[in-house]
C-alpha cells in the first residue's frame, strides 16, 4: 500500500509549492521574541525545556519570618553565598555504621546527593505563599480518619505481598512528580515539551501529562487516574493548567480524590520559569493553599525512568520479610 505518487511528480510539486510558499503571506518566522518573551514557531510563549526544580527556599516558612514573604538583602546574601559555594563530594559516610540509617547506597557516588548544580536565586522565605503565614493549613479531621481506616484495613498485612506497600516501592507513582510539583529528593527535574495546541509535562521519575491548551473545560465525569486529568490555557504569557480526577489511592499529601490543582508557568528570564500552584481539596484542607518557586533550565536531557522494569527492590523486600519470618519461626 505504498504511496503512489511518482518521485518526479513529487519534485515538481515541491518546487512549485516552495515558490508559492515564498509569496504566501503571514508565514511565521522561526521562534522570535516579542516584548513579552520568546515565542514558539507557531506563536505561543516558549516555555519548553528541561528544568531543575531545586530551590533554596523551604516548602513552609520558618516561623521566625511571620508573614514576611521575602528575605532581607543580608539574609538573601547569606543564602546566595551558600548556594554558590562548591563543596566536596562526600564519599565518606556521615551516618553511623551498623544503624538503619547507614543501610543505603551513597547518593553522592551517583551525583544524586545535591541538586546537580542547577538552580536560580530565590528571594522568598518559603515556597508556600498562601495562606499569608507561608505554612500549609492543618489537615481536616477526616484526613486522620481516612488514614486510620486505611491502616486498620491493612494492619498485619503490610508485607504479605506488594499490594499494601507504598506507591513508590510499587513503582506506580512518585508523589514528587504529581501536580503540584514540589522539589524532591533526587532526579527532581521536569521536561516541558510544546507543540501546537499541546504542552507535555513530565517529571523525570513520573508519567507524561499531555495537556491540551485550547482552553477546554475539564470533562464533567472524569475517569479517576493516578495523575488526574489536566487541561490548559494561555493567559497572556502564562500557561495555566487545571488538574482534577485523581484516584483515591494517589492521596498526594494524604489528599482525597477531590483534589484540584491549578498550576501556572511563566517565563521570568531566559533560564527561569516561575512555577506557581494552588491546591484545593475540601475533604483535606479547610482553605486553598499554594505557592511559587523558580525552576531553572538545565541544558541536558531527562533519561528514561523505567521503574517497574528494574524493580528488584520489591522482590528483595518481600523475600527479606519471608526470611525474617522464617528466622522468627525457627527461633521459637
Amino acid at each position: 500500500m505504498k504511496h503512489s505518487m511518482t518521485r518526479l511528480n513529487r519534485s515538481i510539486l515541491a518546487v512549485a509549492v516552495a515558490g508559492a510558499l515564498a509569496s504566501v503571506a503571514a508565514l511565521p518566522a522561526a521562534a522570535q521574541s516579542s516584548d513579552s518573551g520568546p515565542r514558539t514557531a507557531w506563536g505561543d510563549p516558549d516555555i519548553a525545556g528541561v528544568y531543575a526544580q531545586y530551590t533554596t527556599a523551604p516548602l513552609e516558612r520558618p516561623e521566625q519570618f511571620g508573614e514576611r514573604e521575602f528575605l532581607t538583602d543580608e539574609e538573601f546574601a547569606e543564602v546566595e553565598n551558600r548556594r554558590l559555594t562548591a563543596r566536596e563530594l562526600n564519599f565518606e559516610s556521615d551516618t553511623e555504621p551498623g544503624t538503619a540509617a547507614d543501610v543505603h547506597y551513597n547518593l553522592d557516588q551517583f551525583a544524586l546527593g545535591a541538586n546537580e548544580g542547577v538552580s536560580s536565586p530565590n528571594r522568598r522565605t518559603s515556597i508556600v505563599t498562601l495562606p499569608a503565614n507561608g505554612r500549609i493549613p492543618a489537615a481536616l479531621p477526616q484526613v486522620a480518619e481516612r488514614r486510620t481506616a486505611n491502616q486498620a484495613r491493612t494492619r498485619g498485612r503490610e508485607y504479605d505481598g506488594p499490594e499494601f506497600r507504598s506507591l513508590t516501592e510499587r513503582c506506580i507513582v512518585w508523589s514528587s512528580t504529581l501536580p503540584p510539583i514540589l522539589p524532591g529528593g533526587y532526579n527532581s527535574n521536569m521536561q516541558i515539551f510544546q507543540s501546537p495546541g499541546y504542552v507535555m509535562i513530565q517529571g523525570e521519575m513520573g508519567d507524561p501529562r499531555v495537556i491540551p491548551t485550547d482552553g477546554r473545560a475539564l470533562p464533567e465525569n472524569l475517569l479517576p487516574q493516578w495523575n488526574g486529568t489536566s487541561v490548559g490555557r494561555w493567559e497572556g504569557d502564562t500557561l495555566v493548567v487545571e488538574t482534577a480526577g485523581f484516584r483515591r489511592e494517589t492521596a498526594w499529601r494524604n489528599s482525597s480524590e477531590k483534589l484540584h490543582v491549578t498550576e501556572k508557568f511563566t517565563r521570568v528570564d531566559e533560564d527561569t520559569l516561575d512555577y506557581a500552584f494552588t491546591v484545593v481539596d475540601p475533604e483535606t484542607w479547610a482553605e486553598p493553599w499554594g505557592g511559587v518557586y523558580p525552576i531553572t533550565e538545565m541544558e541536558n536531557v531527562l533519561f528514561e525512568y523505567a521503574c517497574t522494569e528494574g524493580n528488584y527492590g520489591m522482590a528483595n523486600i518481600l523475600s527479606g520479610e519471608r526470611a525474617r519470618e522464617r528466622e522468627a519461626a525457627a527461633g521459637q
Binding site: T56, L59, R82, R87, G117, V118, S119, P183, E299
Partner: peptide, 15 residues
C-alpha cells in the same frame, strides 16, 4: 544559572 560542574551546598534539608 549556575554553571554545571560545581556542586552546590545548601544547609536546608529537602522535605
Amino acid at each position: 544559572r549556575i554553571a554545571t560542574g560545581i556542586l552546590i551546598a545548601v544547609g536546608l534539608v529537602l522535605a
